[in-house]
Amino acid sequence: MARSTARKRALNTLYEADEKGQEILSLLAERIDHPGAQTPLPEYAIEIIRGVEEHRRTIDSALNQFSQLWKVRRMAVVDRNILRIATWEIKYNPEVPSKVAIDEALSLAKTLSDAESPSFIHGVLSAIDDHKDEIEEIVIPVAEPESPEPEHAEQAPSDPDVHDGADDEGERDEHNSAPVAELKSEEDRVSDDGAGIDSEAGEQAETSADSTDVAIEERSDTEE
């Protein structure tokens, strides 16, 4: 009798979470902390709720496989949660005989669902009991954390006081070119001055030669 009550309390919580679209374990925590006017949830009810949530993917997959009429998402809310509880007991709770789990599910369906539900639930649970060892557990893969991208070394900001070698060479060429130009100018001036000296010397030589010629002519005239 105690477990029958626990199954009904578990069904109420699963039904409420399903209707609200709320996380099952979140609602369970609320019911444990704040039971309200109801008595605290029985331990077996808590075990059922946690077990159904832990294996819900596997349970729903089995129900979809062995249901001849409706898939889980199209079943009445109360029917699919009765089936979830009974499937968990058949597959995961060896303390409860399969016949007891099926009978308890039919009792809940007769009380809380429509007239056609008991026969439908009985057929699905009988098939699950016959093939329970063939039902494969569905494991939700855990996403691996992404490895952080390697950080790129930041380039050191350029120092405006530091110049490239090419700039230094250019500056040295500019500084060196000025003295060269000055030297060339000096050489040009020396060359020009030398040319002037040579010209003056030539003129003086020509004048001296002319003077000598005049003197020779005058001497010849005197001798005659």
Rank of each mutant, 00 (worst) to 15 (best):
S4F: 11
R7H: 09
K8G: 14
N12K: 07
N12Y: 09
L14R: 04
E16P: 02
E16W: 06
E23M: 05
A29R: 15
D33A: 13
D33C: 05
H34A: 10
H34N: 14
P42D: 08
V52D: 05
V52G: 04
H55S: 02
R57N: 03
I59V: 13
I59G: 01
S61T: 04
N64P: 04
F66S: 01
S67D: 05
Q68S: 12
L69A: 05
W70Y: 14
W70L: 10
V72C: 03
R74S: 08
R74D: 08
D79M: 03
D79Q: 06
D79F: 02
I82V: 12
L83R: 04
L83T: 03
R84L: 06
T87A: 05
W88H: 11
I90F: 02
I90T: 02
K91Y: 11
Y92F: 11
N93R: 05
E95R: 13
P97E: 12
S98D: 13
S98V: 07
S98Q: 07
S98C: 06
K99A: 15
K99P: 03
K99C: 06
V100N: 06
V100G: 01
A105C: 03
L106N: 04
S107W: 08
K110E: 15
L112K: 04
E116H: 14
S117V: 12
S117K: 09
F120E: 03
F120L: 13
I121G: 03
G123N: 15
V124A: 01
L125C: 02
D129T: 10
D129W: 10
D130W: 06
D133Y: 07
E134R: 12
E134M: 09
I138M: 05
I138G: 00
V139K: 14
A143N: 11
S147N: 05
E151N: 07
Q155H: 10
A156I: 10
P157T: 09
V162I: 10
A166D: 13
A166V: 07
G170H: 09
R172P: 00
D173G: 01
H175G: 02
N176C: 02
S177M: 07
S177Y: 07
A181K: 12
E182Q: 12
K184I: 07
E186R: 15
D188H: 10
R189N: 11
V190G: 00
S191M: 04
S191P: 00
D193P: 00
G196R: 11
G196K: 09
I197T: 07
I197G: 00
D198R: 13
S199Q: 14
E200T: 12
E203D: 15
T207N: 09
T207G: 00
D213T: 13
V214W: 10
A215H: 08
I216S: 10
E218Q: 14
R219W: 09
D221H: 08
T222A: 13
E223T: 14
